[in-house]
Amino acid sequence: MTTATTGAPYRPPRLRQAIRKTLLYVAIIFVTAITIFPIYWMIVSTIQPNKYSLSFPPPFFPQEISFTQFGLLFAQRPIANWLKNSFVIASISMLLVTALSVLGAYALSSLRWRGRSLFGLFLLVTQMLPEILVLVPLYILYNQLEQLNSLPALAVVDAAFALPVCIWILKGVFDAVPPEVLDAALVDGCSEFSTVWRIVLPLSLPGLVAVAVVAFFGGWNEFLYASILVGSTELMPASVGLTTLSGLSGVLVEQYMGAGMIFSILPVAFYLSMQRYIIAGLSAGAVKG
């Protein structure tokens, strides 16, 4: 072996590459498995009868599969009503935020005006404030106005916290519309309004969807405001309702985990499919530089 001067055993390059590749795959599988294990465990605990979950140590793979828990969950718990309330809150927030963020994003992206960077700064700061700071005064105000226990009154607050992020998301998308297209439309006699309506918005459709997703699931997932501003069990959204399940007697682990799964399916699916836009908006410039 002429090349073994360094003391390391000689390996043909191909074998070395194969070892490297295997190590890479082992590392990736290991990291991914650890990351998604909690989710896997939620699914396992939902679909297997609870005699397996309530044994120690529990089996790592489901021994038996059953789906009766979903029926019982909807029959015995007000989960359908909770989801309906979440849907109402999320929809109101989505409509408000989508409409307002088009205005803000167009002002930030396509127009040059004095105060533009101040406006951007204002949005950035509001985006970074902790929600709790607003909650105490808002609770006192809603108490005076008798607006506690109102889904629209809750939704408008959720919208206020989703709005800055959504404006950033949409601004990034509007920025990508070539300015020549806008100028050409304006020169052709299109009004500013119809330029936006007929050219900018259709070109920015994925961005609009991303904004709608963030606003909708911002309201859907929100827990803090919902837990304080809505007290009645009738109007409780699912994010708050789920937390009451653990305290109820007779709620079985497969129902508890199943409720969590039902609540999470939509946000996970939509966030994942829109992640590129959402992350760009959340990091406001950190991604694109």
């Binding site: 859907w220 827990f223 508890y256 999470s264 946000p267 994942l272």
Partner: peptide
């Protein structure tokens, strides 16, 4: 996409898990 799931999961069910 699998790695992004924890980020996409709502906080309340994360705590339940």
């Amino acid at each position: 996409a699998l790695m992004m799931i924890p980020w996409a999961f709502p906080e309340v069910p994360v705590v339940m898990i």
